[in-house]
Write a protein that binds this DNA or RNA. Structure first.
Length: 577
RNA sequence: GUCCACGUAGCUCAGCAGGAUAGAGCGACCGCCUCCUAAGCGGUAGGCCGGAGGUUCGAAUCCCCUCGUGGACGCCA
């Protein structure tokens, strides 16, 4: 039963307004003592020609509004406030969670639909730094969120594996490459020679020419150049995959820019057929004046392709291959204009899927007290950040294990530290709206108190611990549907149940706005409300055995909800910490 | 110059298809472990919601202007 909708139906019966309107108007009061749902009466003021306050107090008297699941209806100013019966609410909500477990919040709204999510997309031969983590973590989370809603998700890693820099790399490797170093740490070695190339290039212009020639050979499919490129690509991907595995991130497709490059001629032909290509300053462009956008360059004046043409080819390929209902690009905000242009060209070319393409942008990862430059080599590699976080977590749980005399083995401690440490990093990327910049500082990244993943995981672990202890004492959580769940009507219990009940809606909103933080906020609220309850009420301590089992059911539901929620963010939970 | 974001507590951020006394976390200060994990909980302090106008019963939320910050504006991606 959906209590909100049930309230709406009651209001509909009494006022005669249509259900949709009522549903839109119903809101959650800002204060708890004002009730659980509110219907503002302003909308009725005009038709009834009465003051909203009057209408509210009159409606409050109507016996049509009573029901066994409503404990009170009262008028407060222009608002008609509904108080649900706490016991009935707890039983309803918790029963659903206990039945569904971690699949709580799942829905079928995306059933039969395919959504493509392009994310991560690092450049071959370049270090994977904390900025890449943003798209990776966001895309991973969005993938899981859409899957939760029943969509078929295709995860695409649009690798940066094409362009003139590969001519430079091939040239540099032939001159200064170290085979052994390449095998040992490919990205470090490729970065080293790349940096060296730029230094030497300043002194020797001939290098630039050689690099250009080598890129041309690569494009033309010359064996040696292709072999080197393939090797760089594979070795880089191997490194990236280590990180992906560690974070539980996966992809269905690693087609990079090089793959789509081969499809560009088809797109050019298509644009020519439609007479969209015009020459401008030597380049071939599509004019987008009617959309108030600058022209989109398709072919450079030297006749070579550019990223817009690759994205056009990629979009068409994706539609032809997957017939997507939604095609999402998780790419930084600075590229917003680029995607507007690409989508506009698709639309102009009559591609029916143009309107289903969406750019999901995100902010910059900035650095406090730090300069950020690839050339100077002083970037923060994601791996280093993860390691720092895990190391700090390890110290904390080791200290805790000692004070609590826990029997955790060294291996277990390490495994827990890995999960919690990673979770902490991931959470910093999904705790706020994605368009916000993240100001990176070791202090805030490694602060594990308050609104953080360790807080969520800690809440989970502590609750699991209670459930284990209870089982040892012979107490099991009350089952779904049990009337004893009605006993959960205290302030803290009720607040917690309400937060759990909000999770499914948060997941839907997260997908609708492509904002994982809607989920992280909901989970954090569940954890916070539970911690309040935990501090105010003894779960295992009381004499009332029935209340005890009911409260254990709440514990169980909290665990399910937190686990379901953190999973959607890509954050793992642990049984102890 | 044009366009796009953003500007809310000391800091990081919610809230913005208009609605009741603007909320969290961090930091500060004061408390709470003989009791289920103190990575926890409670309390106090802290706000002309960048500024000025307008729309109306009502604006942090919508419109106009303005200031500030960041970003994007054709042959990089």
């Amino acid at each position: 039963m959906d209590f909100r909708n049930a309230v709406a139906m009651k209001v509909q019966e009494t006022t005669g307004l249509d259900l949709e309107t009522v549903n839109r108007l119903i809101e959650i009061p800002p204060q708890e003592d004002m009730g659980d749902y509110a219907f503002p009466c302003f909308a009725l003021a005009k038709t009834m020609r009465k003051a909203p306050n009057m209408i509210a107090s009159e409606l409050a008297l109507s016996d049509k509004l009573s029901a066994d699941w409503i404990s009170k209806v009262e008028a407060k100013g222009p608002y008609l406030n509904f108080f649900v019966d706490r016991g009935a609410f707890a039983k309803e909500v918790l029963s659903e969670v206990l039945e569904k477990g971690t699949s709580f919040g799942q829905s079928e709204e995306g059933s039969g639909k395919t959504v493509i999510i392009e994310y991560s997309s690092p450049n071959i031969a370049k270090p994977f730094h904390v900025g890449h983590a943003f798209t990776t973590i966001l895309g991973h989370s969005l993938s899981r969120i859409y899957e939760k809603l029943g969509y078929k998700v295709v995860r695409m890693n649009h690798l940066g594996d094409y362009g003139t820099q590969f001519g430079k790399l091939i040239t540099a490797f032939r001159l200064w490459g170290d085979e052994e170093a390449l095998e040992k740490d490919a990205i470090a070695e490729l970065l080293r020679i790349y940096v060296k190339f730029h230094e030497e290039e300043k002194k020797d212009e001939n290098l630039t020419t050689v690099a250009r020639e080598n890129f041309k050979k690569l494009e033309d499919g010359c064996e040696e150049e292709v072999a080197l490129w393939t090797r760089f690509r594979e070795l880089s991907l191997k490194e990236f995959n280590k990180l992906y595995d560690r974070m539980g991130v996966s992809f269905d497709n690693y087609n990079g820019e090089s793959y789509y490059s081969n499809l560009i001629p088809g797109i050019i032909d298509l644009l020519r057929e439609k007479n969209l290509l015009v020459e401008s300053e030597g380049a071939q462009v599509v004019m987008l004046d009617e959309k108030k956008l600058p022209p989109c360059i398709i072919l450079k004046s030297d006749g070579t392709t550019i990223y817009a043409s690759r994205d056009l080819a990629a979009a068409k390929y994706r539609y032809d291959t997957y017939h997507f209902d939604k095609n999402i690009y998780v790419v930084g905000m600075p590229q917003a204009l680029h995607f507007q242009q690409v989508f506009a060209v698709l639309e102009k070319a009559g591609m029916p899927f143009a309107k289903n393409c969406e750019h999901v942008g995100f902010g910059l990862v900035k650095f406090q007290n730090m300069k950020f430059s690839t050339r100077e080599g002083n970037i923060v590699a994601l791996e280093d950040l993860l390691n720092e976080s895990v190391a700090k977590t390890y110290e904390l749980i080791k200290a805790n294990a000692e004070t609590r005399n826990s029997d955790l083995s060294e291996d277990e401690l390490k495994a827990i530290a890995e999960k919690v440490g990673l979770g902490a990093v991931i959470y910093t990327y999904v705790k706020a709206g994605r368009e916000r910049d993240i100001v990176f500082s070791w202090d805030t990244m490694l602060d594990f108190e308050g609104d953080t993943a360790p807080y969520l995981i800690y809440t989970y672990a502590r609750t699991r611990s209670i459930l284990r202890k209870a089982a040892e004492q012979g107490f099991l959580p009350e089952k779904a549907g049990s009337g004893l769940l009605n006993k959960l009507n205290g302030d803290e219990e009720f607040a917690c149940v309400k937060m759990i009940a909000d999770l499914p809606d948060a997941v839907k909103k997260a997908a609708a706005s492509n904002e994982p933080f809607m989920v992280s906020r909901a989970v954090a609220q569940i954890a916070r409300s539970f911690n309040r309850f935990y501090n105010n009420c003894s779960i295992l301590g009381g004499d009332d055995a029935e209340l005890k089992t009911a409260r254990l059911a709440l514990c169980e539901a909290v665990c399910d909800a937190i686990e379901a929620g953190t999973y959607l963010l890509g954050i793992p939970v642990v049984e102890q910490m």
